[in-house]
């Protein structure tokens, strides 16, 4: 049975488990960054931490995907990813070209490679 409460109490539940569990980290970030300016040394480090974090999420989503993407074979995922990267550089770093061509290749490959 679900512990999820019904009616208006559900909003309090969502507020406590959602808002109160998420936003303090952001607000803490506002407070901690008060004395930093854009060329401070600490910021160089924090920016590298953020960069590595996002890169980790990329490979995790690609190699260990969830949801509908999990049913697509690994080689198709990697192939579509590489074609997106290639098109990005061939079009002199056009995000639209890179992102949508990769997505397009992944969708088409599923229809054409399915046997």
């Amino acid at each position: 049975m679900s512990m999820f409460v019904q009616g208006n109490w559900a909003y309090l539940w969502l507020f406590l488990a959602g808002f109160c569990a998420t936003q303090p980290w952001r607000y803490l970030g506002v407070v901690l960054s008060v004395n930093l300016n854009t060329d401070s040394e600490v910021l160089v480090w924090v920016r590298l931490v953020s960069t590595a974090l996002v890169a980790g999420l990329v490979t995790r989503m690609l190699l260990l995907p969830a949801g509908a993407l999990a049913s697509v074979p690994l080689d198709v995922r990697l192939g579509a990813f590489l074609s997106g990267c290639c098109l990005y550089f061939l079009t002199r770093k056009s995000l639209a070209a890179g992102v949508f061509s990769g997505g397009g290749v992944l969708i088409l490959a599923q229809y054409f490679l399915a046997s």
């Binding site: 949801g67 049913s71 995922r77 990267c85 990005y88 992102v99």
Partner: peptide, 20 residues
């Protein structure tokens, strides 16, 4: 589900290309 998979796929690709 084929299109759903393609839509999920846009996120890591966008993250990666923007990081680069």
């Amino acid at each position: 589900k084929e299109i759903g998979a393609g839509l999920i796929f846009l996120t890591p690709l966008y993250f990666f290309l923007s990081l680069i």
